[in-house]
Write a protein that binds this DNA or RNA. Sequence first.
DNA 1: TATAAATGTTAGGCTAATCTAACAAAAATA
DNA 2: TATTTTTGTTAGATTAGCCTAACATTTATA
Lengths: 229, 229
Amino acid sequence: MLSTTEENYLKALLQLTLEQAEKGEAGTNELAAQLGVKPATANDMLKKLREKQLIHYEKYGKSSLTTEGKKRAIEVVRKHRLWETFLYEHLGFTWDEVHEVAEQLEHIQSSKLIDRLDQFLNYPSFDPHGDVIPTATGEMKIPAKKTLNEEEVGHHCKMVGVKDNSATFLQYVDKVGLRMNQPIRILSRQPYDELIEIEVNGQKSSVSPRFAENIVIVCNDCELQKKTD
Amino acid sequence: MLSTTEENYLKALLQLTLEQAEKGEAGTNELAAQLGVKPATANDMLKKLREKQLIHYEKYGKSSLTTEGKKRAIEVVRKHRLWETFLYEHLGFTWDEVHEVAEQLEHIQSSKLIDRLDQFLNYPSFDPHGDVIPTATGEMKIPAKKTLNEEEVGHHCKMVGVKDNSATFLQYVDKVGLRMNQPIRILSRQPYDELIEIEVNGQKSSVSPRFAENIVIVCNDCELQKKTD
DNA sequence: TATAAATGTTAGGCTAATCTAACAAAAATA
DNA sequence: TATTTTTGTTAGATTAGCCTAACATTTATA
């Protein structure tokens, strides 16, 4: 069984390697910074986790998770996000309060507990931040990316990127109230001029198809694709 | 802030001192046994907890909780029993499965979490084992003891003792299906012969007032008395 | 009450996780 | 390419919580 600390290292490594998808590996200093410890400390742990066959690591090289290590890391993420969902939906915690407590709850050891919690929450796909909750089998179902213009009326989604990086466009995005990862709801689509009415953080706006085409979103209500990775 | 280990020592000390109510203090070996550690280990911790003003302790003497120490210990017990209630009532854990997981959950640090959980559970007075859940202010409301004969129809209670210790009586108690701490429900009281119909673990029985007078119970539906202690 | 048994304490060691300081290697840059 | 900067490693120390072995005190009992 892994210690809380070991679990945190695996989780941090997963986060870093997913963020910088190009390489799928992370450096010692980077990992240390992520965890708020000194590089020397992280270095010791890297050797220990290699011994346990949970990571790939060589002296002066970058680190990455083994299949087993990734499985373990994903379990921790699953627990974290299920607890966040519970705190948010059932105990009335706010969006920003859930993380800190979930950091503790994610290390409770009981597979029965987490499976029952999943069931209690009705097998949610997303946590309150809009992040995907891995399934019991360790799959991270990834929602398909598309543009805001392609999204259906009534659906909930969130912005994960933009296609146009001009200052003019970005300022406009800001004015509409769009922020990365913030939930967006499609209220309506005017048949006359194709203007899309959206709601973001309580603020309603109408945007043109031209604008919407440059906003990359993931849909929370659409079918998810299984990702074996 | 206290470590998980420190909290466990305080909790163990509370349990020991409440069990043996005569003295309100416990020995080093006893405490060590309760926690599954060696006396030498417990001895170190006793000194540490005395430094923190959480216990009274003198070399070669018995230990007891200070006011602050008792407050902290009761907080842990409160968390433990609220989590047990959650696991039992909402996640479908059985009576005997809840303890182990609650041992972990009781150390999660977040007063907001535990207060919200209390609210979510609708401020329960008893955990699934029938033990009293301390209030947010650290009071342990103690249910009044009375005999089964004095209990009202419709109420739920549990046996906490007997007044008659004869073999005949105890065998009868056993036959009726009564066990210590097991929930009992009063179904009816016959006006004609005063026979009391009770239900225990799904089994219905009728008992005489003479019998009922010798069963000591605590009522789960009656008003609780505040215990300042 | 003298001795044996039970209980409690101290000293010294171990491991996990952390640190600082000094050093080594790799990468960036002048 | 030579040098500087960044990145990574090692050695040695610290703290919490645990251990064993030896010793001290208290309590029980012959």
